[in-house]
Write a protein that binds this DNA or RNA. Structure first.
Ligand code: SF4
Ligand code: SF4
Lengths: 148, 148
DNA sequence: CTTATATAATACCTAGAGGTATCATTTATG
DNA sequence: CATAAATGATACCTCTAGGTATTATATAAG
């Protein structure tokens, strides 16, 4: 059900950077706002730029910018990179070698859940998140100004 | 999305024991069939009897029996004991202290997923699993005779 | 061209879920 | 009763996601 921490962090980072998608954000600024453990955040940012969601500007006054259009970056794309296992079609009972010739009573139901989640992730882009944030200020006010 | 191993194990154990709900099963027999790591299985069985899904018969010829009616044991009840965190209403973004005054764009969608899962777990009892197993032999044939 | 400020690379540490090992206790049976 | 066959209790080990620490590299600006 819930995502691993790294995924949550990635979602929050990109959602935050979408607020002003065209400017660059330093790790320090993101840390100030999101309070993701600093050094882990550093590592994650370089991963996100290696996987081309961001590009980095090195040196003084450096930072990261979102690369590409917000509406083209779906949450599904992010999770594919950051936690690919999340999306694989797992057996409800955790069985590796089920033949799946005739499926058990949980199989289709669980596929339904998976489809439900996938649909949400595939249909929600950073543009949607940004728009949601503008409509009610939750992200700017609460979500993005956490206490330590 | 997927459950932790202990939950998967619990589901499989109880589903298996539901096949002949009235007799007792030794750990050795369950191990033979399900190939859950032996000593971990032992530990889990005593947990399941402490939480009253099973009761244990000690001594020679001992084992475990399902306690109560199959239709009264919902998967939800099991997971409540074995992985209570699974069901808590987690924020999509993993935020602890969101005020939730005005909810973000993901909130309701994610609640929908949670409700979906909860409905499945709350509505499926061991009796349903057993019935499903009888209709197509997946559990008996594949699911419950795994290789090491 | 030096310095300060940024990211990059890499190696290491930690907590907790999952898994093991050992010994104690219960009880059917001869 | 003695023994074997079962569960109970408890302490320890292990692997990995998450988190730290350190050093290297890039670059804006004086
Ligand atoms: S049919 Fe049932 S046991 Fe087999 S993979 Fe699907 S959920 Fe798992
Ligand atoms: S409103 Fe959004 S940020 Fe707040 S708890 Fe719900 S999902 Fe999380």
């Amino acid at each position: 059900m819930k995502f691993n921490k790294t995924t949550e962090y990635a979602f929050r980072i990109l959602s935050y950077m979408a607020i002003e998608e065209s400017r660059s954000y330093s790790v320090d600024e993101i840390f100030e706002k999101l309070h993701i453990p600093y050094r882990y955040l550093r590592k994650l940012m370089t991963n996100l730029s290696k996987s081309n969601f961001l590009y980095s500007i090195q040196g003084k006054n450096g930072g990261y910018k979102i690369s590409g259009k917000l509406e083209d970056i779906k949450l599904l794309n992010l999770i594919e990179v950051v936690d690919p296992d999340y999306l694989v079609s797992n057996c409800f009972f955790g069985i590796e070698n089920c033949s799946r010739e005739s499926t058990c009573i949980m199989h289709d139901q669980w596929d339904g859940v998976r489809t439900h989640i996938n649909t949400i992730l595939a249909n929600t882009s950073l543009a949607d998140i940004k728009q949601g944030n503008n409509q009610n200020k939750i992200v700017l006010n609460t979500f993005h100004s956490l206490k330590t």
